[in-house]
């Protein structure tokens, strides 16, 4: 940079500068390599299953270790169904909470409730699993299932959707537990997004005599639509890959069907449960890896969608 001859000490400094730059760069590269390794090792691990079964891996419902035949349909359906239920329940919860925190509550109250919601987000997932198993499962078995079985048995589409033995575990229960797990995450992002709406817009609407709900629904919500969808997709990503909480409450049966109250399994819970019984190098382990690879792709895709909608990081 300078025109004067560089003294020795600053030459050493320059060398250190290059050295540190290289160190920082190498760390960044290592992070890149971790993800690369993750994807490559998943793909190679699942290669045996994918070549043995081909594309029929994804539409076979059988998961039969005795006959050594594996299909991904049952766990994939379980994952998708429980995630959909979780989102349907979590979106109104998160939207309502974020509305309350940003527009209604006094700043003192909002700080307290906000902290509580953040703490809920920090509770380890295995705790959610145990809590779900000992609190939600009996609730569903004792009250919800007898009720829906009694009242909706003969209703056109609802009947087959809601029937099932009243044992409490199943897709619906895991959807409920996942919903309270991901709702705090979605709430936090939604609060940020709502906070980014220019105060001018909000205040003009109030000035024109709009009610709080009208300001929310007609001004803030349209303004932050993309951000909200991004938040929801982020929550979806978490629900897709959640393992411990789901393993406790879903019942862990690999079967395909439309009943929401029947025990099922998800990709993540199946991996967690079947892994200890799958010897290294077996077709079973390879099938689990292929499932894991599929889950990774789903998770990546949901993140890409969330980022595109949120327009990069905030």
């Amino acid at each position: 940079m300078s025109m004067a001859p560089v003294p020795r000490s600053s030459k050493r400094q320059l060398g250190l500068d290059v050295l540190f730059h290289a160190l920082f760069w190498a760390s960044a590269l290592l992070v890149l390599l971790i993800l690369g390794g993750l994807i490559v090792l998943m793909a190679t691990g699942g290669w045996k299953a994918l070549t043995t079964f081909g594309l029929s891996f994804f539409d076979q419902s059988a998961w039969n270790p005795v006959k050594d035949r594996y299909g991904a349909l049952a766990p994939l359906l379980g994952t998708v169904l429980s995630t959909v239920i979780a989102l349907l329940l979590a979106i109104p919860l998160a939207f309502g909470t974020a509305f309350w925190l940003t527009n209604i509550a006094s700043s003192r109250l909002a700080a307290i409730i906000g902290t509580a919601v953040q703490l809920l987000a920090a509770v380890p997932s295995i705790i959610f699993g145990m809590w779900g198993f000992f609190t939600i499962v009996p609730l569903v078995a004792r009250y919800v299932q007898p009720f829906v079985n009694h009242h909706f048995r003969h209703v056109f589409i609802l009947g087959p959707l809601l029937k099932g033995p009243p044992i409490g575990t199943g897709v619906m229960t895991s959807g409920i537990v996942l919903a309270v797990m991901i709702a705090p995450f979605i709430t936090a992002v939604m609060c940020d997004v709502f906070g980014a709406v220019p105060p001018m817009l909000r205040e003009s609407a109030y000035g024109l005599g709009a009610t709080r709900w009208e300001v929310m629904w007609k001004i803030i919500a349209p303004w932050s639509r993309n951000g909200m969808i991004g938040a929801i997709v982020l929550g979806m990503g978490r629900a897709l890959g959640e393992t411990m909480a789901v393993t406790f409450v879903i019942g862990n049966v690999t079967s395909v069907g439309w009943s929401l109250f029947a025990p099922r399994s998800t990709v993540a819970s199946l991996i967690a449960l079947q892994f200890p019984e799958s010897p290294a190098g077996s077709l079973r382990l390879s099938s689990l890896m292929a499932l894991g690879f599929t889950l990774m792709l789903l998770s990546c895709a949901s993140l890409v969608v969330a980022r595109c909608l949120r327009g990069g990081r905030q």
Binding site: V31, L35, T243, A272, G292, L295
Partner: peptide, 17 residues
Amino acid sequence: FVSDVLMSAPSILIGLF
């Protein structure tokens, strides 16, 4: 971006990896 992907990657897959 990769760091964000890693942050939201299912933890069970990290175990498999």
